[in-house]
């Protein structure tokens, strides 16, 4: 089956991932899935000034998902909405178990994600960007978190639901996954499907996460290996990274 935009059922839209795209933030990343564009920046860990929010055992994670006003057809009203509040929460809860928060008691790690352009699966792009940005910030993590949506149109399971497919899919199901621990850390669904189909859709979404996981790692390598080589050059050393892998 060919999809509305010509993709194969298990094909993700063109992916662009880049780490370290902002200078001021400690870590940052931009992720594009087709036209959907998310940029994430990380600040911290730094001391959390408000005492009543502090946790004496671990750092707290703050995540803000925000759609910029010009990101959609109809202008988005600036500021938090019910939708963005919920998405910020589920993204935070998807990332928490990947970060070694217990290494920074009483601190806060802040992740700001702006959606510059929205065309389906913005939470997924946001989460992928946030995960790269956290790693780029050098924050100790157990694994990267990767995220992808899947759905079902008629008899076909489809990966990375986008565009007009959103209107005809039987469900829209975003998943976040930590491949090393095989753990699903974000799971939502809108739709109407028997249990058997829901399981198949989740498994397809996990496959998508695994593909995106490799791209996330690649984005981090591209930045950090590049940096290492520059440093090496400046120091007059040659090829310290021992190749690109």
């Amino acid at each position: 089956m060919k999809r509305l935009d010509g993709r194969k059922p298990d094909e993700i839209r063109p992916i662009v991932m880049q780490a370290g795209v902002l200078k001021r933030a400690k870590g940052s990343a931009i992720v594009k899935l087709g036209r959907t564009t998310a940029i994430a920046g990380v600040y911290g860990p730094r001391k959390l000034h408000s005492k009543h929010q502090q946790d004496s055992n671990k750092a707290i994670l703050k995540v803000t998902y925000n759609m910029v006003p010009f990101s959609t057809d109809e202008r988005v009203r600036p500021g938090p909405s019910r939708r963005s509040t919920e998405i910020s929460k589920v993204i935070r809860e998807a990332l928490e178990s990947a970060i070694c928060l217990e290494e920074f008691p009483k601190a806060v790690i802040e992740v700001q994600i702006d959606i510059l352009q929205a065309e389906a699966s913005t939470r997924v792009a946001a989460l992928n960007a946030a995960s790269i940005a956290l790693a780029d910030a050098g924050i100790p993590m157990k694994d990267l978190v990767s995220s992808c949506t899947a759905g079902k149109i008629e008899d076909t399971y489809i990966l990375d639901v986008a565009g007009k497919e959103e209107d005809v899919t039987f469900c829209d199901l975003p998943v976040a996954y930590m491949p090393r621990e095989k753990k699903i850390t974000l799971l939502q669904m809108d739709g109407d499907l028997p249990v058997k189909d829901v399981k198949n859709v989740i498994q397809l979404a996990i496959k998508g996460c695994e593909t995106l996981y490799e791209r996330q790692k690649q984005a981090l390598k591209e930045k950090w290996v590049g940096d290492l080589e520059d440093t090496a050059k400046a120091l007059g050393l040659s090829n310290i990274s021992g190749g690109k892998d």
């Binding site: 930590m178 095989k182 753990k183 699903i184 799971l187 829901v198």
Partner: peptide, 14 residues
């Protein structure tokens, strides 16, 4: 199934 939502910091296996 018509809706799902995961909460909390940890995850679930398949």
């Amino acid at each position: 199934i018509c809706a799902m939502q995961k909460g909390g910091g940890d995850g679930f296996t398949f």
